[in-house]
Design a protein around this nucleic acid. Sequence first.
DNA 1: CTGTATCCGCGAGGATACTG
DNA 2: CAGTATCCTCGCGGATACAG
Lengths: 123, 123
Amino acid sequence: MRDPRLHCPLTLAVKAISGKWKLYILSMLSDGTPKRYGELLKSTCENLTEKMLTSQLRELEKDGIITRKVYPEVPPRVEYMLTESGRKLCTIFEPLYEWGVDYMKTHRHDQLPWLEMGLKKLA
Amino acid sequence: MRDPRLHCPLTLAVKAISGKWKLYILSMLSDGTPKRYGELLKSTCENLTEKMLTSQLRELEKDGIITRKVYPEVPPRVEYMLTESGRKLCTIFEPLYEWGVDYMKTHRHDQLPWLEMGLKKLA
DNA sequence: CTGTATCCGCGAGGATACTG
DNA sequence: CAGTATCCTCGCGGATACAG
């Protein structure tokens, strides 16, 4: 690191969303309603494991992108929700979604997994 | 894969940009001007290796996001450039950049590497 | 200059079992 | 229900050498 040009906002943003499952998780939360742990675990058809979900959630929480709310109940209930910052980050899903639609018009895709998301509420 | 709900455009888009270096590479190309191999290799302060650059470029090319043009010269010259599809994909950099700016207003960042990019021309 | 080819370390991440 | 705790595989990706 001899380059003195630091503090690039774009690098920061790219780092925040890198991580194999973060965009998937964020897309599940992007409709704005809180989601429970088990809900997130099941709502993807890719094989997201408990360990991975937990670690990615922790990082997103550390970065101030989501909040984790624990309800002192039995059985326990934990809800994850976007912060204001997280909601802003999720604006990228709209262009991403549109890009995907465009892309599918001109290519063949018969093997792609489906992803739960809430773009309708975003738009 | 027992879920019958396939063909999600968002999943497709997420897959297209996943890969450790793709967003960095795309951001370097996002000003629209063609870039040479060596140029891309040097213009990031992270340690992107030749192998990684090549593999990521190949995938982006395969996905129709960039084009690779070889000039039959000596010494050889190869230029990489966004396709129409790639340019559309790069629209996410604007919200990402803005998110990073917002984020930096409320957090401390003294260790982040800088990234060559061309948002000005995009805006 | 723009790449392959090869080797290989290492840690992300998957599987499984267990806990408050 | 919502997680830890462990173990272990596997392939990403770094280093190096070489080629057209």
